[in-house]
Design a protein around this nucleic acid. Structure first.
Lengths: 211, 211
DNA sequence: GAGGAAAACCTAATGGCGTTAGGGTTGTCA
DNA sequence: TGACAACCCTAACGCCATTAGGTTTTCCTC
């Protein structure tokens, strides 16, 4: 029973898989998400294109793996931003900022995850799972803010969540489409994040009902 | 001087060009924007692929023509919605609704125009021109609302316009990415348009300064 | 109506792509 | 040491966008 090390071969294999995904992201950053070429990936790895099929059954499977990886990375980034902050209001801004900043700094992932523009690509349930976790995180986050008396209970309703995500998505998508190279602080759209949050807080003010 | 008719040949030519663009849109609706295939277009028209090069110098030129056509169509739809309405508040909602509705009903155009996801595609200045007209229309629209005493002057500032477009873009992009088949009225995100407009009106209320 | 130019369309070919089939080599474990 | 599987290769298929170059069709002018 020498299974202390996961087989050494599987470890090496996993390493190659990660390498393929890394190269794929790099190439997409330069050439565009939809312009990913398996031949180019193979060339960069010193392989012949068919060899990649030892690791992924198709190009779509690579997109799927990246979709999953992106969602995991974003989930973790969001969670990291929520840690180590006590003040609730400051936390909300910093968590939303972390979310936006991550998207601007990982445009390739963001495009893959939030705009479904790759023809024929549908994420697998497994790859989608961490995205559901992130939504759940957001819901819990809003509920904690409600608990703290800073938001009306409706803020964590389906409508509240849809509104929150739509407003953030709007900032991000406009920023990415119109000024992709601007920083989070300077971007004509991303810099409006505090404004948008303020509007959300005003709409779901704790004292006042909605509808 | 029999130039009463524009040459008959050029007329026929223009007709073929429109036909190519129509077929291209139809195919993109089925296969995806980035999956447009000139061979498929040619097949549908009963042509051989190289013959298309009589009409467009490259695939990107077709994308460019569609980009322009989409911007013209949206501009005209927006203008049509602004006509024949007197009440200023109702006008604002109906114009924004028309905008969102058009995007949901012309997803292919919207994807081409608002998310720049085609690798290597950059719209020509000529194709971009009608988009500038639309932005100018929006600005004039907001200024008229300000004039009517319904909005604070800051609403037509660069920040106000960025905020307005970002919020609408957020609704549309979330709707297209998550529920592309829902109607404008039923969509989980698109149906929030009145809410979003209300929030905008609240932020730029006429009595109160912003900054 | 005839001649000629240009427009419209074709075939052939190039180099790229994703993917499949099938054969050899190499590392690893019994 | 033998055997098996993982790994990587070459060859090939059918698709794509695009270019080169020739042929037919259309239409204006004389």
């Amino acid at each position: 029973m020498s299974t202390t090390v996961p087989d050494r071969r599987t470890r090496r294999r996993q390493q190659t898989i990660e390498e393929i995904l890394d190269v794929a992201i790099e190439l997409m950053e330069v050439e565009g998400v939809a312009a990913l070429s398996l031949s180019a990936v193979a060339r960069r790895l010193g392989m012949q294109p068919p060899s990649l099929y030892q690791y992924f059954p198709s190009k779509m499977a690579i997109y799927d793996a990246l979709y999953q990886r992106g969602n995991e990375l974003l989930r973790d980034a969001y969670r990291a931003a929520r840690a180590n902050i006590d003040d609730q209001l400051e936390l909300n801004l910093s968590a939303a900022s972390a979310f936006c900043r991550w998207c601007l700094e990982h445009q390739v992932y963001a495009q893959l995850m939030f705009w479904r523009t790759i023809p024929g690509f549908e994420p697998s349930p497994e790859a989608y799972a961490p995205a559901l976790e992130s939504i759940q995180d957001l819901r819990e986050h809003l509920e904690a803010t409600i608990e703290a008396g800073l938001l009306h209970p409706d803020a964590a309703s389906d409508e509240g969540i849809a509104l929150y995500t739509a407003m953030l998505a709007g900032l991000i998508s406009q920023q990415l489409a119109n000024e992709p190279d601007a920083s989070f602080e300077d971007g004509r759209f991303s810099r409006l994040l505090p404004v948008v949050l303020e509007m959300f807080y005003q709409r779901y003010a704790p004292t006042r009902g909605t509808t």
